[in-house]
Every structure is written in structure tokens, then in C-alpha cells.
Design a binder for these strands. Structure first.
Length: 194
DNA sequence: TAGGCCATCTGGTCCT
DNA sequence: AGGACCAGATGGCCTA
């Protein structure tokens, strides 16, 4: 099943502080209020630390414990926010990659795994094309072409050896021309919406 | 309704 | 010590 471009959606966030400024993936609703989160965290923490009553009584929290708990909550909130930002920059990078990879259905957003797979094979097919052209055009001449081609062939041999050891290698991966074929096949399989 | 994809939270580990 | 990175868990939204 494929995921089509989606309208914004909401997430009932269990935790979080506030709307992320400059959120580039408005896929999600801004998180809950800090107050809510703090409440949630406090109750969780209470459960975890075993608000275990001893003989039906709660132990008295040591002096300063409340302050430490608050600062611990605060640190968690800040950490969550950083993590959110980190994921946003990662998603921005994915988006930038999507925009650079030619694919058939412009209206369909590539998933992350599709983006990576397509990018890998696109790079391979471009590399193969460039090397084929340059080695053909500059036989025996000084220049990057032949060296690159040699390097590429070495890489291919290594990959074949590794694959032989592992016992897996698609025929398309084993030769330059195969990359283009594999890439275009993949584009079409994605288009089919497999 | 099941399955795919994703955002977010969270705790652990690594790095500076 | 604090931030970055990572992976597992959770739950929402969407499509077939």
C-alpha cells in the first residue's frame, strides 16, 4: 500500500511543549501545552518511582525533591524539543533529496525508503553513464575519465566478491548498464503504486 | 480493518 | 556535563 500526499493531520501528543517554530513539516499538529506535559510527566514519574505507599502512607519527599523533579522535567522538555528539531532537519534533507530525484509521479510524495532507494540507484546510473561516456571519449588520454573508470571497476569487482561471499547479487548491479535499467524499473514500480 | 508510513516521546549511548 | 544520535514504543492518519 502506498501513502499519497496527505493533508495536515493531528496527533494527540502525550508530551511536548509548544508549537515548533519554523516547523517545516506541518504534517503534525503543534504539541500540547507545557502544563499538560508537565502534568503527564509528573504522573508518569510518580508511577515509575513507585508512589508505592508504605502501609497506605506515602513517604514524605525529601526537601528539594520537588525542585529536582521540576528541573528534570524541564530538561526532558528541552531534550524533546531538540529531538524534534533534529528530526525536522532530517526531514528537510529528505525533502531536498526528493526534489532532486527525477521520478514519474510528481503528485505522489515518495516515502523515505523509496527516496533513499531511488537516490542510490539514480546515483549509480549517473555514475555508470558518466564513466561509460568519459572512458569512451578519452581512451588512453590523461584525465579523470580513465582513472575514474578504473576506480569504478575496482569497486564493482569488490562488490561482486562480497556478494559472491554473501551469495546475493542482482545481475543489474553487476554491470554499469544495469544500473540505469534497475533505476528505470524502480521508477515504474513506484509509479504503479506497489 | 489491516497494514504502511510517519511524528513524537523516551531512555540509553556516544561524543565534544 | 550537556548535546547529538539512535532505536524502540506509541499512536494518528491514510489507503486498499
Amino acid at each position: 500500500m502506498k501513502t499519497k500526499a496527505r493533508p495536515p493531520r493531528r496527533r494527540v501528543a502525550a508530551q511536548s511543549t509548544e508549537a515548533t517554530p519554523g516547523d517545516q513539516t506541518p504534517d503534525r499538529a503543534p504539541p500540547d501545552s507545557g502544563a499538560q506535559l508537565a502534568r503527564s510527566l509528573r504522573s508518569r514519574t510518580a508511577q515509575k518511582q513507585g508512589a508505592r505507599a508504605e502501609g497506605g502512607r506515602r513517604r514524605q519527599a525529601p526537601a528539594g525533591a520537588a525542585g529536582r523533579r521540576e528541573s528534570s522535567i524541564q530538561r526532558r522538555l528541552e531534550s524533546n524539543e531538540r529531538e524534534r528539531q533534529r528530526m525536522h532537519t532530517l526531514n528537510n534533507a529528505f525533502q531536498a533529496l526528493r526534489e532532486v530525484i527525477p521520478h514519474v509521479r510528481a503528485d505522489k510524495k515518495l516515502s523515505k525508503i523509496e527516496t533513499l532507494t531511488l537516490a542510490k540507484n539514480y546515483i549509480k546510473s549517473l555514475t555508470a553513464t558518466i564513466l561509460t561516456m568519459s572512458s569512451g571519449r578519452l581512451p588512453g588520454l590523461d584525465g579523470p575519465g580513465p582513472k575514474l573508470y578504473q576506480h569504478y571497476q575496482q569497486q564493482q569487482q569488490q562488490q561482486q566478491q562480497q556478494a559472491a561471499a554473501g551469495g546475493v547479487l542482482a545481475a543489474a548491479e553487476s554491470q554499469p548498464a544495469g544500473h540505469l535499467h534497475k533505476y528505470s524499473t524502480q521508477i515504474h514500480s513506484f509509479r504503479e503504486g506497489s
